[in-house]
Amino acid sequence: MNSANNAAVVVGVDGSEPALRAVRLAAIEAARRQRPLRVVHGFIWPLLHVPVSPAPDAPPGGGLRHQAEELVEAAVAEAEATVPGLSISGEIIDGEAAAVLVGESPTAALIVLGDRGLGGFSALVVGSVAVQVAAYADCPVLVARGEQRPDEPVLVAVDGSAASRQAADFAAETAVSSGVPLVAMHAYRHPGSSGPGDMQPLVYDEGKLHGEQDRMVAEWLSGLTEQHPAVRLTCRAVHGRPGAVLAEASRSAQLVVAGGQGRGEVSGLLLGSVSQSLLHHAHCPVAVVRAPR
């Protein structure tokens, strides 16, 4: 995450209603983090060699580039109405939407985007741009989906991996700045093996296993309260599939945070299975935080 004082919250827009929801969420996040807001539109048509200026006999205000300018202006106006007085800029950048936003990420504090755009089919729960940006961005990515519940806790998925430690730090900062508790949740299914090649036991004590999982979560997060003394932290270990458990818990959260790739994920995956599941099924906004490469 870029901590430079001038690092902006960047929101991607395409004129769709999900993008406008993302703009409102991005404005709130920028104000909370005391950052400027940068509204960006990826303008793909020049790459496809499509004429973007109005035809010679067309009425004034025509052409694809003028339409892009109008949608950026509308997004800036939406952000200004959401948080009056916020420092906001807008820009059209030639390129495909996901590539443009990933290109913005090295100097951004946060990337925000909607869960679907104008090119998405209504049957899709999350758009390909959101998945691509979450997989490749060099800063945290916030996807606006589900309901806004500003008084509910921040929820973070933890599993002891480097990515989940980054996610927990981001979640703690957000919870403190929002004035709400932080709930750290670890979902487990079976006893873990004690070494390479060990087989999981066929019979085990569920109560004992749950206690061990609780202790593991406490150990993973032992330094979090030292780094964030104001955080009100609750740790929970829950038996079940991580994606399903966290998606259900997101019904009573203002935000769910996950690492880009967790413990046990295949190293070749661009985005971890838990993050993928939450992007498709969470009932509140989702933040994906990848460990530094």
Rank of each mutant, 00 (worst) to 15 (best):
residue 3 S to L: 13
residue 137 A to G: 05
residue 20 L to V: 04
residue 90 G to D: 09
residue 84 P to K: 11
residue 287 A to R: 03
residue 7 A to F: 02
residue 145 R to H: 08
residue 240 G to S: 09
residue 112 V to P: 01
residue 226 E to A: 15
residue 177 S to M: 12
residue 52 V to F: 04
residue 28 I to P: 00
residue 114 G to C: 04
residue 206 E to A: 15
residue 28 I to A: 00
residue 16 S to F: 04
residue 107 T to P: 00
residue 170 F to V: 06
residue 218 A to C: 05
residue 128 S to M: 09
residue 150 P to W: 01
residue 122 S to L: 15
residue 186 H to K: 07
residue 106 P to A: 12
residue 105 S to P: 04
residue 261 Q to K: 14
residue 187 A to H: 05
residue 122 S to K: 13
residue 14 D to E: 11
residue 88 I to M: 12
residue 147 E to L: 09
residue 77 A to Q: 13
residue 24 R to I: 00
residue 273 S to Q: 12
residue 215 R to H: 08
residue 141 V to G: 11
residue 129 V to C: 09
residue 144 A to V: 00
residue 214 D to C: 15
residue 109 A to P: 03
residue 94 D to W: 05
residue 109 A to H: 14
residue 49 H to Y: 06
residue 38 R to N: 10
residue 141 V to H: 06
residue 61 G to M: 08
residue 200 Q to L: 14
residue 40 V to L: 09
residue 240 G to L: 07
residue 88 I to Q: 10
residue 35 R to C: 09
residue 247 A to F: 01
residue 54 P to I: 08
residue 58 A to Y: 03
residue 28 I to H: 00
residue 135 A to I: 02
residue 119 G to R: 12
residue 55 A to W: 00
residue 130 A to I: 04
residue 229 P to D: 12
residue 44 I to H: 08
residue 151 D to F: 03
residue 95 G to A: 02
residue 111 I to M: 11
residue 210 H to K: 14
residue 9 V to C: 05
residue 227 Q to F: 03
residue 123 A to M: 10
residue 227 Q to K: 15
residue 73 E to R: 14
residue 161 S to L: 11
residue 17 E to C: 04
